[in-house]
């Protein structure tokens, strides 16, 4: 058995195009999902059960089901439910955004909860008005605390985006699989695809670890 990794180079452009699609989809879903997650995280700390309960149900459903099932549901069912065709890319973005929103809301909720009662006491002792307390003390600390996990959620979403290939979107994985089928060289092509994902995700996880210890050191004061 001989391997010819040079064959992969012939498909350099196609793979890069797939990677570009993967990155674009990731960024869109990360941005939309983080905003959604922030709102839902707030909703989960709300006093009214009419806000809190639906928010929790949403999070539990999206964390409690396989992402691939969510993806299939939005691909095959959403058009039927709303009664009109929707482009594949829209269904894909909706599914991954909702997933990102669910995991990110947990991140925000945990970081809000991590702010100690003493910080609130200090705000009261200084007579800070409620708005100042939220804008200048609570939110900055919560965001700082959430930032490393948020970044690690981005890495997760980058990896999950490979599922879009299963519903026919031309991302890195989809193009890799096509090349692999057409050339009958799965070992070379799929290994390179895996390495590309690794080359992007791994450095990011290192950054997360570094970043996290710095944030924790800062907030421990």
């Amino acid at each position: 058995m001989t391997f010819d990794f040079a064959i992969v180079l012939r498909f350099k452009e196609a793979l890069l195009l797939g990677l570009w699609t993967t990155l674009q989809l990731t960024v869109i879903c990360v941005v939309l999902g983080s905003l959604l997650g922030f709102l839902v995280g707030m909703a989960r700390s709300a006093n009214s059960p009419f806000v809190r309960v639906p928010a929790r149900a949403y999070v539990e459903v999206f964390r409690g089901t396989p992402v691939i099932v969510q993806l299939f549901w939005f691909f095959f069912c959403l058009p039927l439910v709303i009664g009109t065709e929707i482009p594949n890319i829209v269904a894909g973005i909706i599914a991954l955004t909702l997933y990102m929103g669910a995991i990110t809301s947990e991140t925000f909720r945990a970081s809000l909860k991590s702010i100690s009662r003493e910080q609130y006491d200090a705000c009261t002792a200084l007579g800070l008005p409620h708005a100042t307390q939220v804008v200048h003390v609570v939110l900055p600390q919560a965001l700082l605390r959430a930032a490393p996990t948020l970044l690690s959620n981005c890495v997760s979403l980058f990896k999950e985006s490979a599922l879009l290939s299963a519903v026919g979107m031309a991302d890195l994985m989809f193009i890799g699989q096509n090349i692999s089928n057409n050339t009958a060289r799965p070992v070379e092509v799929l290994t390179v695809v895996a390495l590309i994902y690794f080359a992007i995700a791994f450095p990011l996880t290192r950054v997360v670890t570094r970043f996290e210890s710095r944030v924790l050191a800062k907030l421990s004061a």
Binding site: E160, A162, V187, L190, A194
Partner: peptide, 23 residues
């Protein structure tokens, strides 16, 4: 550890099914 943590699970699964029999 890092390789499995930093690549998509679907890539790992498809890699196994296609490549292990050949390798």
């Amino acid at each position: 550890v890092e390789f499995f943590r930093c690549t998509p699970a679907i890539v790992q699964i498809i890699w196994f099914f296609y490549c292990v029999p050949i390798l």
